[in-house]
Design a protein around this nucleic acid. Structure first.
Lengths: 158, 158
DNA sequence: ACGTTGTTGCGAATCGTTCCCAATACCCCT
DNA sequence: AGGGGTATTGGGAACGATTCGCAACAACGT
């Protein structure tokens, strides 16, 4: 039904390419897996498993949440998606190709995508002083965003 | 003096001082609360609620896990303890006075305490480019420790 | 001592995620 | 173009970490 019609022409990687990769690894191209991939390639990052489930269920209502989890796990093993923890609450998933760190505001919950270069100073310091190689992608760094800092500063001086 | 010399000035440096503060805030100095505080002031950081419960129960076997959680919550509200998330799995609690960041190894699970100065570069970058003020204490930064990097490097070159 | 009210023990509820199972559907082979 | 092996599914139960509701209890000011 025109499934491929809304795929961006010339995109470096698409749903069917991923499914070919799945098949090559001994997996199968099931409809739930295809729909999930379409959702992951669609706009909007940082979706939780439950949000993805709802999106998928708008097309195929019988897809179970546990199927979403299993497919995300499988796609993660293939290196297609990754998940990140942005604070308390559920993990969020996005395409592994869109790689970045996360800064998450403790006040309003907003998440900023941070270019990995932002972490270079910390990476260098951790490497030279502790021999530790950081990976800033998996867990967000918490703090307070510009808007909340402004608001809190005003509220503070009464 | 001595033991408490590395604690932040102004923070209560002993069990009874904290309990006085609890009382001043309208709370009560219960035995379970006292024993919990003794465990928190004792050696060894990064204890989970369950570990603390076991330690407390060696002295007072009837103290329930939910009491531990409630007391930790109360002590956190008073600024005496904080918790940090070191990766997947339960949160860990320690005295708020012993303040530091955390680097947690994804391979072996070891946690390094990182002086807050280590995060200065990241803090500066996030502040100037995004207006975001980081707080590196609440969530660990993941990565790979020196020992695991060495081990993995050897295993990798076949 | 006494009463107020903060706290406790206990179990049930919650949330996010994983596990188990029998039934299904994909896809390789012929 | 059909059958069979097996990856995958829906469903629900189990799980770990934490929170909640409630009646009984125990601290502390008076």
């Amino acid at each position: 039904m025109g499934v491929e019609s809304h795929l961006v022409a010339g995109a470096p990687s698409g749903v069917e390419e991923v499914l070919a990769r799945v098949r090559k690894a001994g997996g199968r191209a099931t409809t739930s897996r295809r729909i999930l991939l379409e959702r992951l390639f669609a706009e909007g990052s940082h979706k939780t498993a439950e949000e993805l489930a709802h999106e998928v269920q708008r097309v195929a209502p019988d897809v179970h949440l546990s199927t979403i989890y299993r497919n995300l796990e499988e796609l993660e093993r293939l290196g297609v998606v990754t998940h990140a923890h942005l604070g308390h609450g559920p993990a969020t998933y996005h395409l592994a190709a869109e790689t970045h760190g996360h800064l998450s505001c403790e006040s309003c919950g907003a998440t900023l995508e941070a270019p990995l270069g932002l972490f270079d100073g910390l990476a260098e310091a951790a490497r030279t002083t502790l021999g530790f190689e950081i990976d800033p992608r998996h867990f967000a760094v918490l703090g307070h965003c510009a808007a909340c800092r402004a608001r809190e500063a005003v509220a503070g001086e009464v």
